[in-house]
């Protein structure tokens, strides 16, 4: 798992690649928390290169959703592969976060 982050104003875009599973969900949590605690109230996660996410990864995502909500911002996902979209649907996460086709659409949702 790797996250490459870029910033524009109070919005951060993190490109997530690899897999988020029980072995590295803590690192995923730490990276997301670092981005949000660093001042980004809006977070877009580009999931185009994400291979899979297990429930441990969803827990980290849930924490990030809560933090951005508390900061008055939000978390949005884009480029979500079909299998991972199914994980988000089955786990009810599509109700907790918005899913967009592109980074631009996700960014625009915060304006």
């Amino acid at each position: 798992m790797n996250i490459e982050t870029s910033y524009s104003g109070d919005t951060a875009v993190g490109v997530v690649s690899g897999r988020v599973d029980s072995s590295n969900a803590k690192d995923f949590d730490g990276e997301l928390s670092g981005i949000i605690d660093g001042g980004a109230t809006n977070l877009v996660l580009d999931c185009g290169s994400l291979r899979y996410i297990s429930s441990a990864g969803l827990r980290a995502l849930l924490i990030a959703i809560r933090k951005t909500n508390q900061a008055g911002g939000g978390l949005a996902l884009c480029h979500v592969p079909e299998n991972i979209l199914e994980v988000l649907e089955v786990s009810g996460f599509v109700r907790l976060t918005k899913v967009f086709e592109t980074v631009e659409e996700a960014q625009a949702s915060f304006k």
């Binding site: 297990s54 429930s55 827990r59 994980v87 089955v90 786990s91």
Partner: peptide, 8 residues
Amino acid sequence: IGGLGIHL
């Protein structure tokens, strides 16, 4: 926080 693994 948790309880999703078996459900998935």
